[in-house]
Design a protein around this nucleic acid. Structure first.
Lengths: 193, 193
DNA sequence: TCTCCTAGACCGACCGGTCTATTCAGAATA
DNA sequence: TATTCTGAATAGACCGGTCGGTCTAGGAGA
């Protein structure tokens, strides 16, 4: 049952962390929600911070699933693959109740005081942009983007703007800002291809 | 001294809130930093939440100063006025140690559980976009933007993307994402004017 | 004196984390 | 196969510290 218990803590912890953020999530509340006793929690995790970092890892597993599903889809043009990834993310946000992106939320909450988390989240962003940049480079080679376009910078822009739209979507509990942002970005990026 | 005490709490509270966020900011720490006794705090503020909401009001006063300084500058073209506002904001972030925008940080941290804050922050964003939209409408009329451009939507896009860049800037303690985002946005917005 | 504000001791609740006892599946031994 | 052994996992009482908030007393200006 050990694996199940840990998995359950991570899974329920993921949704609670998304809603409450880090500091507003009490261990006790998590244990009550899962029915897991405290001893088990501290058997599997060294501390609350360790736990949260592992939740982020789990979150990133899902992100990578989305990246793979979208960016490896050979039936789409490279640029459409990139857009597809964010549309998949939008659907995930919808399932979670329009709470936006956990990386953005934890990044904002913790990066002012906790360098470990700041590095962790920035590293996650950097990994995602790397994949997207590869995809955009392919788009550039196929003429979907201007020949002098910088895929790495374009990928960072895309992700950053997405995170801003995700914040607004969280505030409004409405996915509309996400779509508006994608429309604007892809129209702008392709205009002078 | 009453006014001074309250002002001091708001001012020091502003910088501490920016760095720590809401839940990680203890009343006690604020009182130690200001030398104000607890009784005074609860004389001026009904609760921690009330205090934080007033800090946001104070933050918005500064935002409005920036809006006025930039958007009323008749020596600039309308579109340059809008850009100027964000450049002023960027300079403010720099002074604060590249911690980004307090609205974005509090919005991310609290909007999952606290509807009062969610509404408050969303309202702040909405007020800012309204001013920017007016400015963009002027730009449209002067031919700096396409005749069929939607100033309200463009203003929301601009602010949302800015907030995303501000998050990344906070993570990296580096203003570069802010400038990249402005370059991209204004190039895109003006291209088909 | 009356009102506003300062002053800080004090409160119960809750926080993250520790500790010890117990359970239990499976390896080891015969 | 029956028994013992062992370590991982469960279980929750318990800890000191800190949290936001209350209360009462004192001081200052009208």
């Amino acid at each position: 049952m050990a694996l199940n218990t840990k998995e359950q803590l991570l899974e329920v912890g993921l949704s609670m962390l998304l809603k409450h953020g880090y500091n507003d999530l009490g261990i006790q509340a998590l244990l009550e929600a899962t029915g897991v006793p405290k001893g088990s929690f501290y058997h599997h995790f060294g501390s609350k911070e360790d736990f949260a970092l592992q939740v982020v890892d789990r979150y990133m597993q899902e992100v990578h699933q989305g990246l793979e599903a979208a960016l490896q889809d050979q039936t789409l043009q490279p640029l459409d693959r990139a857009r597809r990834f964010f549309e998949l993310s939008r659907e995930k946000y919808r399932q979670d109740g329009h709470l936006g992106c956990m990386l953005g939320a934890l990044g904002q909450e913790l990066s002012g005081v906790n360098p470990t988390f700041a590095r962790k989240i920035e590293n996650c962003f950097s990994v995602v942009t790397r994949h997207i940049a590869e995809c955009l480079e392919e788009a550039r080679q196929q003429g979907q983007l201007a020949p002098d376009a910088d895929p790495v910078e374009l990928a960072n822009l895309l992700l950053n703007c997405w995170e801003g739209a995700a914040l607004r979507s969280r505030l409004l509990r409405d996915p509309a800002p996400l779509d508006r942002m994608l429309d604007f970005y892809f129209a702008a990026a392709t205009r002078d291809a």
